[in-house]
């Protein structure tokens, strides 16, 4: 397993772990204190900040080839896949509130950063999964 696969696995693990932890917190707080206060459990989403540590945890080894042409091809393809996922997500984030709430109504300001975080995390997860699938399958060049 090379450094990029390890980083991708780490990203997927952190995202899944954070969402499970957040769900548990919100669930427990809902039972104990009811819904409005239970939303404070969403603070556990801050664990997603661990994603930024991947570069420090999985350091580049000296005197080794870390990123050759195949790695570059896989990386570019994962970016393409992530970009292809971005547009439906972005469109859904814009249009779903439009249809559900209506164009003349208001949403709490807290919803906006949550939507942005959700999109960003979805893209990181999509890129990580694309990287892992391609390394696992051994993509044929040009196919």
């Amino acid at each position: 397993m090379n450094r990029w696969q390890k980083i991708a696995w780490y990203n997927v693990f952190v995202i899944i772990f954070t969402f499970i932890l957040t769900g548990l917190c919100v669930g427990v707080l809902t039972i104990k204190h009811g819904m409005p206060k239970a939303l404070s459990g969403l603070g556990m989403l801050g664990m997603l900040g661990l994603l930024g540590l991947s570069g420090f945890i999985f350091k580049k080894k000296k005197h080794n080839v870390e990123f050759d042409e195949r790695d570059r091809l896989i990386f570019y393809r994962s970016i393409q896949i992530t970009f292809a996922i971005f547009w439906p997500l972005f469109t859904a984030a814009c249009m779903i509130p439009w249809f559900i709430i209506g164009p003349n109504n208001l949403i709490p300001i807290n919803v906006l950063p949550l939507m942005l975080v959700a999109i960003a995390i979805s893209l990181i997860a999509a890129q990580s999964i694309a990287v892992l699938v391609q390394y696992g399958r051994g993509e044929k060049d040009g196919q």
Binding site: V65, E66, D68, R70, D71, G138, E139, D141
Partner: peptide
């Protein structure tokens, strides 16, 4: 000047 994984992928015909 490549990674061992690339050599493995080339040998097994999974990468051109």
């Amino acid at each position: 000047d490549v990674t061992r994984q690339t050599i493995i992928a080339i040998e097994s015909g999974k990468y051109t």
